[in-house]
């Protein structure tokens, strides 16, 4: 009884994850520029993969600890990588959406390490 319930709960988790992953893909397709796309991409894929892996852990009970560890690692690293992509693409000068209204980053002074030069 409990096993069947946990299995169905896992199926629900997996389907939620798949739905959010689909939304992330749709967001990457529809939104206008890199930063907006990253917004959709990061949030949707993080919740999607975390929920899917926990669902798999509930369906196959031998893997639940693995799944939780995977989820924690993803929660730690996914925002960092998206931060790196956003920073690098701003730094390189990727075109941003024209209606981006306040752009505080433009006024920021970049620190250069010794020996580095501005291009």
């Amino acid at each position: 009884m409990l096993d069947a319930f946990l299995g169905w709960l896992g199926v629900v988790f997996v389907f939620t994850g798949v739905f959010f992953l689909f939304l992330g893909a749709l967001g990457i397709f529809r939104l206008p520029d890199v930063f907006n796309r990253l917004q959709a991409g990061t949030k949707a894929t993080t919740l999607g993969v975390v929920s899917t892996s926990i669902g798999v852990g509930l369906i196959a009970k031998g893997w639940i600890l693995f799944a939780v560890a995977l989820a924690i690692f993803l929660l730690m690293t996914n925002p960092i990588s998206s931060h790196a992509i956003a920073r690098a693409s701003y730094r390189v000068g990727v075109k941003k959406y024209p209606q981006t209204d306040p752009d505080e980053c433009e006024k920021r002074e970049w620190k250069f390490p010794e020996g580095g030069e501005e291009k």
Binding site: H83, A84, F112, P113, G115, G116, E117, E118, K119
Partner: peptide, 9 residues
């Protein structure tokens, strides 16, 4: 040498 200092994050 890098072009900028890598961020703290």
């Amino acid at each position: 040498k890098n072009k900028t200092e890598p961020s703290l994050i």
